[in-house]
Design a protein around this nucleic acid. Structure first.
Length: 278
DNA sequence: CTCAGTGTTCAGTG
DNA sequence: TCACTGAACACTGA
């Protein structure tokens, strides 16, 4: 699920459960991959008794500010999510909010119990997510090398344009590059290029003034709206490409009746509308 | 049974 | 060294 809007929703879930509260009990799964070689017992030791001062996000990364360092950093990979009993989960495909059928949910990697009774878990079925610990997450990799965050740190149009200069690769590849813009993933890249009416294969440095402005505006619009509705896909406008990109059905069309085609760009499946994007 | 997949990293190339 | 590409990773669900 996780591109910027889904991760920002995860931040809100964690914030409501954790901020201001003390972690009374922490349970971690034995999973050397997700915990970056750290043992479950050590993870539990680093978290138990700590008070959470804030839950921060940059791009697709989240971290807790605790009363003692190091601080935990969370990345959802392809399938991770934060859940708490009070908050509904967002279903992967449809984006609809659903209640968990069991608690803690399947694939729970970490389970926190807070003083006062709130709980929070991170699930991660495919184990491409990561939970690591850093003394100062924003100044250390991988967070330090991220590019601008389109929600909290959108550059000026002039700076955005300057960032396109000298880029030899495709626009699609650049949008997916977290060192350029942090938080854009496969569906947002396709949505933004469709709404800006630009061919995903175009070299980034080839855009004229109108095109780069259009791309800039599309990024802001898609991110801000998706965040506003807590990444619930059924609340995205009907005109968005998003609703029609799944399944790669031949003869897929947008709500406007435009033919959608699929191709691989920058190594990723790319949905686009040749009639609109040039 | 096979394969694609909303992500990142790393080896290899230019 | 930088920019970029493609494979690998891990596992579920179609």
């Amino acid at each position: 699920m996780p591109e910027l809007p889904e991760v920002e929703y995860g931040r809100k879930v964690a914030d409501s459960a954790a901020t201001g509260n003390i972690i009374e009990q922490a349970w971690a799964a034995d999973d050397a991959i997700v915990f970056c070689k750290r043992s479950a017992r050590e993870v539990e030791r680093l978290l138990t008794g700590r008070r959470v001062h804030a839950v921060k996000r940059r791009g697709k990364y989240l971290w807790f500010e605790l009363d003692q360092r190091p601080w935990p950093v969370f990345h959802f990979g392809m399938t991770g999510a934060f859940r708490c009993p009070e908050q509904t989960a967002i279903q992967l495909e449809t984006g609809a909010k659903v209640q968990d059928s069991q608690w803690p949910p399947r694939f729970t990697k970490i389970h926190l119990h807070f003083a006062g009774g709130r709980e929070l878990v991170m699930t991660n079925p495919r184990r491409l997510g990561r939970i690591s610990f850093h003394e100062d997450p924003p100044s250390e990799n991988p967070i330090a090398k991220l590019g601008f965050d389109p929600l909290t740190d959108m550059p000026s149009l002039a700076d955005f344009r300057a960032g396109l200069d000298g880029r030899r690769g495709t626009l699609k590849g650049l949008l997916l590059n977290q060192k350029f813009a942090a938080g854009i993933g496969n569906w947002i890249a396709d949505e933004v290029l469709y709404q800006a009416r630009i061919d995903p294969r175009r070299p980034a440095q080839s855009l004229d003034k109108n095109e780069s402005r259009s791309l800039y505006r599309s990024i802001r619009k898609v991110i801000e709206l998706a965040v506003k509705v807590d990444a619930q896909k059924d609340q995205f406008p009907k005109t968005w490409l998003f609703h029609h990109r799944w399944g790669k059905q031949s003869a897929a069309t947008t709500a406007r009746g435009e033919t959608i085609e699929f191709m691989t760009v920058a190594g990723r499946t790319t949905a686009w509308v040749p009639h609109v994007q040039s």
